[in-house]
Amino acid sequence: MKLENPQVRDLIAAEYVLGTLAGGARRRFEKMLWNDANLRLLVEKWSNKIDTLAAGITPVTPPTHVFTAIKKRLNLTAPTDRTEAETPASGWGKLAFWRSATALAVAASFVLALYVSVYLPKPEPAPVYVAVLNNEAAQSSWIIKTNVEARELSIETVSPQYITADKAFELWLLPANKTAPISVGLVQNQGVTTLTLPSELSVEFIKTAGLAISLEPTGGSPTGLPTGPVLYQGKLQLL
């Protein structure tokens, strides 16, 4: 299938989203999508409109066993959720002596491991906080992760944020008591940026503060306060 005519490409993308593209044509179109970014964009564009048809569908609650199966397949089931049926049978009475001895040794090692894990002190993992910063259209644009106690922030773009060469993004802490924003530093417009939180701020202060990214001149705000528009905002939540 050759799709060079822009109008034909657009129409075929629309038919694919609608579902009328069938058989070999559908399969060939899906193969083309892998290597044709422009075609993927056309599909996104049509899907954003056509798929809102589903808004009018009456919802139907699926049976609870479906999510149980999903969790099991993704290994998301907590150990306490496991049933006895999932535990392998031991078959003690049928084992020969040497096999019993091996099993005993294995069991003993489990008991020891359990003792070590339960009774010996181990360091508590530091709590991790996450914030998703949205733009005005409520689209998620940045993901911020932090171990507040270690004073490190990792800021990642959901997708590259385009700006002109004379501008930069600056991250701010917005204190819960509504006092002036505190600059954390400049963040790159794509990929991951790592910043250190000011050492003079308490952990409680950071946990309760909001986060915002403003558009500033290259090098950051010349005044120490946001001078450009605040484009993205969000709040830390315990992960």
Partner: peptide
């Protein structure tokens, strides 16, 4: 949108909330 982004971070709680919120509509589709 936020719940889906938190799934990128493999946040199982967000995934469960996303499922509860959207599965009736998606199941019906």
């Amino acid at each position: 949108n936020n719940l889906l982004v938190r799934c990128v971070l493999k946040d199982a709680t967000a995934f469960e909330s996303l499922y509860k919120l959207t599965s009736p509509k998606l199941f019906s589709i």
